[in-house]
Design a binder for these strands. Structure first.
Lengths: 221, 221
DNA sequence: GCTCCTTTGTTGGAAATCCAACATACTTTC
DNA sequence: GAAAGTATGTTGGATTTCCAACAAAGGAGC
């Protein structure tokens, strides 16, 4: 696990933590790693809640699925990102959503309960950890706000543009790569893939953007 | 402000706090009350972020508004509820949304920065406060998850049913009252008011529910 | 009771989405 | 390089939403 110490220290969860404290802290948090092959579930709706996931390799998507088989992608977690924190910290018993490995992934799982309980050993930093977690969960909240903003646009074109403008803003550039393929983007925005694909074609033809795969360039007109 | 101490102590933010500590704590958090008449803004998009709101009287809605004048209701906060916590804790500079008083309201505003900074006086409970806040923000996250679940349904009828079933579940009864009028419910679900009204009529005619104003009864068939 | 004003329900045509089916491009595997 | 599998783009018709305008119902104030 030591090979991932630098990665962990760079995550917002362990921000401000003394590197020397990391190892005992991980032990105290009941850390354990799991390896999940591409496409397999990390957890399923109904599973016991209470753990916080950190992506060390690969990527994870958290999704809602309904009867009809419709997928709605809630969050996409890349290397260094957290997932499941909000469910862990909200004191619920079972997960209301599922998580899948989008690629072969190596994940670190931490116990939320142990994070919130002060224990004996090297855990003077528990309080810092809780503050970090608060910030992480609050920022996840902002992300969901953004998603809601995209989804509440009326037309597919408006949803796309709202999303792409936000990505450009986040990248600080009119050129950026999104973490979704077409189907996943449609599932994230809550629209039809084929209709979305058609809208992307129109936007390109209108000179508003260029795209190649998941790489986009927005033109200001 | 003392008249509201019991209310404050019953909120999840001050859960586990010794009543004797409340007053100095409020002082330490830079608490101040404001009175907002019905319909007036509590804060507007672009205002400085950083405060946590507690509803002591009345109710507050947090909304997103776009160019076209479309409203999207993000959260509805009743007496005893918090609002704006996620924006305050996420370390952003300006509010990305607006808040309005739905009725004449009396609000308590707390400084988030002061909550996260350990100060000298009676603030041994800061850590408890941060933990409480983490739970509150995490639960708000679940609420947004639910809203996303409603919004990601394909038809207006499905959105309505998903919302109403959740309300029944939350009320623990097939009979419940929602905090929205028709226009507000439409704005919350992201649908047309008139189309939604028509769907409600169909659902009633089909014997799936009864409704009078904001009071609903779901029938199991 | 009466009027004014707000909320809710109803309607019909225009616009957009949904869906399934198929065409094309790109990847992977052997 | 061929073949199989996956991802993306394209099309047309059925369904649904959107929008504006109006009708009906309910409430507040006088």
């Amino acid at each position: 696990m030591k090979e991932y110490f630098d990665l962990l220290l760079s995550t917002p969860l362990f921000s401000g933590i003394d590197p020397q404290d990391l190892y005992p802290m991980l032990h105290c948090l009941g850390a354990n790693t799991v390896t999940i092959p591409k496409g397999d579930p990390v957890f399923l709706e109904g599973d016991a809640a209470g753990f916080i996931g950190v992506v060390m390799e690969g990527s994870v998507q958290v999704v809602q699925e309904d009867f009809y088989g419709n997928r709605n992608i809630l969050t996409h977690a890349e290397k260094g990102d957290l997932f499941g924190e909000a469910f862990a910290c909200a004191n619920i018993e079972t997960m209301p959503v599922s998580g899948y490995a989008v690629r072969d992934s190596k994940l670190l799982l931490l116990s939320c309960q142990k994070m919130l309980t002060v224990c004996s050993s090297a855990c003077l930093f528990h309080n810092q950890l809780v503050k970090n977690m608060l910030k992480v969960v609050a920022q996840k909240n902002l992300e969901m706000n953004n998603k809601i903003r995209f989804m509440s646009q009326k037309t597919t074109k408006e949803k796309l543009m709202a999303y792409l403008l936000e990505q450009a803003k986040a990248a600080g550039s009119s050129e950026f790569t999104i973490p979704f393929d077409r189907q996943a983007l449609a599932d994230y925005l809550g629209v039809e893939r084929s209709a979305m694909s058609a809208e992307l074609g129109k936007l390109k033809k209108a000179g508003i953007l260029d795209l190649k795969g998941s790489h986009f360039v927005l033109h200001r007109t």
